[in-house]
């Protein structure tokens, strides 16, 4: 019971600290803006640990964070191999192929206003569909290896990136295009010097959405067939064996991979679209 009340007390104290920090004179400081969510995250972990121990929750239902951490350290080799298989080979390769294909398609589509008007509503609709359901078909077509995972990822990221890029390419204002006309600029000059830079904030929206979808696609595809490693494979087999701590270890890895992937793209976005009002702040 000490665990339970202790952890609750810790959480309350952490919350109080956050309230104080959030209303303190230094609240606009960068360090404080980072510290507050970190303190909140730690307090949740402590609460989780305390509740599980205090109420003696079965590890089959919910293992405490300390047990998950121990499992991560113990099985790091397995986790790493799974990570490489799913996140790097499946998700990232599919992501790169899918985004490149979508980008090139968007450039082609953009040349014909007729095509653009036809494709935009359809692309928007398809982007909202549960494309992840294609997973078994891709596994059927491309086999159990990472190629089928990459194929699912390609299908999932293609439309969001396509739609955002096409939309972004029409972002440059009429006036700026007129300006290009007075310079007698050619199509490619206008594209490279005006429309692509203006489209970047939109393109990055698509790219960011894609990062999450990529991992989802790669993991789900493994539920339908994979070699004997990979994050999705591990999760589904360990759930079957009720080794929930290992499942959580994989989830932690997946969360880390997802956040890193998203963070990386966000960083590149900051660097490329430094000039956009949303980035200047």
């Amino acid at each position: 019971m000490n665990w339970l009340f202790g952890s609750i007390a810790f959480w309350v104290a952490a919350w109080a600290l956050n309230v104080w920090l959030a209303n303190s004179p230094w609240r606009e400081r960068r360090a404080v803006r980072i510290a507050i969510p970190v303190i909140f995250g730690i307090s949740i972990l402590v609460l989780w640990e305390g509740v599980v121990r205090g109420l003696q929750v079965s590890p089959v239902v919910l293992p405490p964070p300390s047990a998950i951490w121990a499992r991560i350290l113990q099985s790091f080799d397995i986790l790493w191999r799974d990570f490489v298989q799913t996140a790097i080979k499946g998700a990232v390769s599919g992501y790169v192929i899918g985004c490149t294909a979508a980008f090139l398609t968007a450039i082609l589509v953009d040349r014909k206003p007729f095509l653009r008007r036809g494709l935009l509503p359809i692309g928007n609709f398809v982007a909202a569909l549960p494309i992840v359901g294609l997973a078994p078909i891709m596994v059927n077509w491309f086999g159990f290896g990472w190629e089928s995972k990459a194929a699912v990822v390609v299908a999932m990221v293609f439309f969001p990136v396509l739609v955002n890029t096409v939309q972004g390419l029409s972002e440059a204002s009429e006036m700026q295009r007129d300006l290009m006309r007075t310079y007698a600029a050619g199509y490619w000059q206008e594209l490279v010097k005006l429309r692509l830079p203006a489209a970047m904030p939109f393109i990055f929206n698509g790219l960011k959405v894609g990062t999450t979808l990529a991992l989802i696609g790669a993991i789900v595809a493994e539920y339908f067939g994979s070699p004997i490693y990979g994050m999705g494979f591990r999760i589904s087999t360990e759930v079957g064996r009720l080794a929930i701590d290992m499942v959580w270890a994989e989830i932690a890895m997946a969360a880390l991979a997802g956040s890193l992937f998203y963070g990386l793209v966000t960083l590149i976005e900051k660097w490329v679209t430094f000039w956009h009002p949303s980035q200047r702040g």
Partner: peptide, 28 residues
């Protein structure tokens, strides 16, 4: 290239420096 056009809005490219903006037509 007989015309230099100035619009009501400056219409400078936010991703280019002032020098970069002035350079734009020269590059083209």
């Amino acid at each position: 290239r007989a015309y230099g056009y100035v619009f009501q809005a400056a219409g400078l490219y936010p991703w280019r420096t002032i020098a970069g903006n002035v350079k734009l037509p020269l590059e083209i």
